[in-house]
């Protein structure tokens, strides 16, 4: 794709310092996150892996401002996070397209909230629908799309808002493995164009290594960062990487880490 004025717009760093999150109070309360600290650099693709229930979603919801932390600080672009805002885009595991809006109107939603003029909104929508290969489906309703297509629109919708960081909570978790691989390739390509700061959550180790500049491995509940692994494969990457010896040894390393404290997994 030709370099567009919507490519490589802005991205920011995320600083997470000694964050704790407790759900509820008293004896039935749940300590979901126990002293999480890490930074994500601008333009970095950072992936968090961990067993189910270790607090991955909770962490993303905190950065998005959709959940309130119990202690610690989170800053994005130097500003402490308190509320949700359009500078932190998010793609959810559940399908969250607005069913009453067409694909194009879904993508247009953020720019419209910002009060952009119609002509510019149209440019933005055209650009990002082309990015995710769904220009032909602009006038479809979400109910007419497959799961993979819905998530592609969700990615386009988040990027159309030109967020400084993109938060992704197991966005491909509900897809079959074939579609999931296609989506990973697509996300890599889109990210090469936009170079947003990405914080991506998954419990799929291959997905993590394939996408990431850096993988953070979390322990079971209460969630802590157990290890940080830098991934150095050249970009642009493709699926063939999965068969490389280095890839497999990294995968084994993460598997071992997860096995140790994995008693929480259902």
């Amino acid at each position: 794709m030709a370099k567009s004025r919507y490519a490589n717009l802005r991205s920011a760093d995320i600083v997470i310092d000694d964050v704790h999150l407790r759900y509820g109070t008293g004896p039935s309360s749940v300590l979901a996150l126990d002293g999480i600290s890490f930074d994500v650099k601008p333009n970095e693709f950072c992936v968090i892996v961990g067993p189910s229930g270790c607090g991955k979603s909770s962490l993303l919801y905190l950065v998005a401002g959709l959940e309130t932390k119990t202690a610690g600080t989170i800053t994005v672009n130097g500003k402490p996070v308190s509320d949700p805002g359009p500078e932190r885009g998010m793609v959810f595991q559940a399908y969250t397209l607005f069913p009453w809006l067409t694909v194009a109107k879904n993508v247009e939603y953020g720019p419209k909230r910002k009060g952009y003029p119609a002509a510019e909104r149209k440019d933005i929508v055209d650009h990002f629908l082309a990015e995710v290969g769904l220009s032909k489906f602009a006038d479809h309703y979400p109910s007419q799309l497959s799961g993979g297509m819905k998530q592609r629109v969700a990615i386009a919708r988040a990027l159309a808002n030109d967020p400084m960081v993109l938060l992704m909570d197991e966005p491909f978790g509900a897809l079959d493995s074939q579609t999931r691989h296609t989506m990973q390739g697509l996300l890599l390509r889109v990210w090469e164009h936009s170079k947003k700061t990405v914080l991506f959550v998954t419990h799929d180790i291959e997905e993590a290594i394939l996408l990431a500049d850096r993988v953070l491995v979390m322990s079971g509940r209460p969630g802590q960062i157990k290890k940080e692994i830098t991934i150095n494969f050249d970009r642009p990457r493709n699926m063939d990487l999965v068969l490389e010896p280095d890839f497999i040894s990294t995968k084994r390393e993460i598997l071992e880490l997860l096995k140790d404290t994995d008693d929480d997994e259902h």
Partner: peptide, 14 residues
């Protein structure tokens, strides 16, 4: 109304 639909709207500037 699904909570994540509302959450998505918040992250888009609603």
């Amino acid at each position: 109304v699904p909570r994540d639909l509302v959450n998505a709207a918040y992250t888009l500037g609603t």
